[in-house]
Design a protein around this nucleic acid. Structure first.
Lengths: 250, 250
DNA sequence: TATCTTTACGTCAAAAGTACGTAAAGAATT
DNA sequence: AATTCTTTACGTACTTTTGACGTAAAGATA
């Protein structure tokens, strides 16, 4: 444990030299699996405490690039849809003493700033393509169903809550295919929308609206192996960069 | 000039000790006057160069509090509507050498970080209530009509452009009375919306929609001294915290 | 007094949203 | 093999919202 603390201390010393102080990035990586929104979480080494993937911005690094780097490392994806959604800049965001204790960190060893301003990013990724990878300070990385997420370190539960709010808001503004595979069925897309919005939608109206949006392109194949009538596969029309109609009104 | 540079250097040294490095706040303070959007700008001492009000975050200060402090100092207002709208975090945001030169700053004297991440806030204020006040490093502070804003220092023209985009987006989500006096007429509110949106609206439909929103309360008085039929005065119903209908569809 | 502009409403048709109907496809059951 | 069940894919009809435009009253000006 002393050895580990030493490693942590050295790591933070390195970060302290190469990265910007007082500022961090926290990433809410959303996946969609079995009709549930999932978030990728990490377990802090030697503890049962979970937290969001995050990291620091190198002194000469673009903030967006840093966010992408951090998210890429945890997911193994080279392409991901990223959205900056909030700056968490309160002077006191969480109980530090309590947090260091939960993390098994001796307070005096943490050579880092007293408070941190966090830039909140969320990523929308294809669940099945992610290869969760813990980082230097964590020993487990896995998906958590949104509704089963435990009490997290720092203010990360709050950050997730704000991320979801932002995601809901953006559902109306942008095509939201990033959480699904390249090709998908309309009912699958409907489940995704329902899950994000938190209430059921009428299948007939959803279908109509998606068709009317002009954003979807029907593929010749149908989804095989379904228990009932095989649904057609669709994909977002790459040529379509406009907006998908607001699904909150479906 | 040497004395002035010395003062600047000392100021930056002080900031460097008390504030967070690499991070700044830039404020786009919007006012509405004579049917034009205005932005409050500062002129850098000893130059003809203009820039946005801005500042740094104290080490133990909430980011929102810092933004409010900075905006309050320039406007003399104790209450202002603030909205964080974007983080400008590119590694290279502007030509530094060129900028220092424009600002008459000897490069070697500027004891500050190599790059700055800027948190963009905009404020919506009542134009007539603002008492523009330059800060320590500037010698003039005044409103500029949006369309007449000159080339600014740093990437501040870009920041203003992004602020307006955000303002337009938010026009649909929130009652936007903050730029008008407490009481105003419907046509005055329409001019404001038209100015922000950049296109004319139909007065009949605008009236209908504003009434339908339920956000406005008609006062018993009418605006006196108008050249034609005296319009009623309204104010935003304080009890109404909901949304004003999307004026982009008017 | 007539005219002109502006306000404060109103009307109506088109578009969008919403509730619900139903035939065809495909599997499971009788 | 026929029936039943669920799901998809598309349709119909009603309601609400939007958007184009009409107009009388108020108040200044000609």
């Amino acid at each position: 444990m002393i050895d580990y603390n030493d490693k942590v201390t050295r790591h933070y010393q390195n970060v302290s030299e190469t990265c910007i102080h007082y500022l961090s990035i926290d990433g809410v990586i959303f996946g969609f699996h079995q009709n549930q929104l999932n978030v990728l979480l990490l377990r802090w080494k030697g503890t049962k405490e979970w937290l969001l993937p995050g990291g620091f911005i190198k002194k000469a690094e673009s903030v967006d690039v840093a966010a992408r780097r951090i998210m890429q490392e945890r997911t193994g994806l080279d392409q991901l849809y990223l959205q900056q959604f909030h700056v968490f800049g309160e002077a006191v965001r969480y109980n530090q003493a309590e947090t260091w204790q939960k993390m098994n960190l001796p307070t005096q060893n943490v050579n880092w700033s007293e408070r941190t301003i966090s830039l909140g990013y969320y990523a929308l990724v294809e669940h099945s393509k992610v290869i969760p990878a813990p980082d230097f300070l964590t020993e487990e990385c896995r998906w958590w169903q949104l509704k089963q997420i435990p009490g997290l370190l720092f203010d990360h539960n709050h950050i997730i809550a704000v991320a979801i709010e932002s995601l809901r808001k953006q559902l109306g503004d942008q095509p939201i295919g990033h959480l699904l595979p390249e090709s998908f069925t309309i009912p699958e897309l409907q489940r995704l929308h329902e899950t994000i919005l938190g209430y059921p939608l009428d299948a007939r109206n959803f279908y109509k609206k998606m068709m009317a949006s002009g954003a979807l392109e029907r593929l010749p194949e149908r989804r095989a192996g379904t228990p009932h009538k095989a649904p057609y596969l669709y994909r977002f029309d790459p040529a379509f960069s406009g907006r998908v109609a607001d699904p909150a009104t479906l």
